[in-house]
């Protein structure tokens, strides 16, 4: 889910984030507060879909950590996104097992079909494409994820079929 960081939806998001932080044991112990940072960022990304500056600012203030420190952490970990992702987040595992079983071919097909490269989001915000390293489903290699759904043993042709199905879903939603 990607939420715009302004307006009513955002307000609700910030409220949810504040509520979450208030359940943590934030106190005078700076060391302890700091140790909550990564899990708070996870929660924030779950709510907003990404971590824009406004969100980082709120986190920094609530945990009493300098914004630059928060940014330092966000930019270090590849799981955290500074930009919003597409409605359909497609990830291709390029871990060893998947690589050996043809993951790059799957990535090529997706690039060709969606017109976006690894790490990009389509201009209409529908799709984003990423590669990731091993989700621990190596027995099903090559593996692809669309949002949180896993597709195993995919071939280039199946990839096209799966995309077509998702396209259809998208079309139906817009009616």
């Amino acid at each position: 889910m990607t939420t715009k960081c302004s307006g009513a939806v955002a307000k609700k998001g910030f409220k949810e984030l504040s509520t979450y932080i208030s359940t943590l044991n934030i106190g005078d112990d700076a060391q302890k507060n700091r140790a909550y940072l990564i899990q708070v960022l996870h929660k924030a990304q779950e709510i907003f879909g990404y971590l824009p500056e406004e969100v980082q600012k709120v986190v920094a203030k609530k945990l009493n950590i300098h914004l630059a420190e928060v940014y330092g952490v966000v930019s270090f970990y590849s799981f955290f996104n500074l930009e919003p992702k597409g409605k359909y987040r497609i990830s291709v595992c390029t871990g060893t097992a998947c690589y050996v079983k043809g993951a790059m071919g799957i990535l090529d097909v997706l690039t060709e079909e969606l017109g976006i490269k690894d790490g990009e989001t389509s201009a209409d915000g529908k799709w984003s494409l990423d590669s990731l390293r091993c989700i621990g489903a190596c027995g099903l290699a090559p593996v692809m994820l669309i949002n949180d759904k896993t597709y195993g043993n995919v071939t280039p042709d199946q990839t096209r079929e799966i995309l077509a199905k998702v396209e259809q879903e998208l079309g139906e939603e817009n009616v």
């Binding site: 140790a35 909550y36 990564i38 996870h42 270090f76 970990y77 799981f79 990731l132």
Partner: peptide, 26 residues
């Protein structure tokens, strides 16, 4: 439980410790 956030180097024990502490996992 503490969560990683997609950095391979955090498997190295000193990085892992920094990550639990809420820092960059260097």
């Amino acid at each position: 439980i503490k969560f990683g956030a997609g950095a391979f180097v955090c498997g190295e024990e000193t990085s892992l410790i920094h990550s639990i502490e809420g820092y960059r996992g260097e």
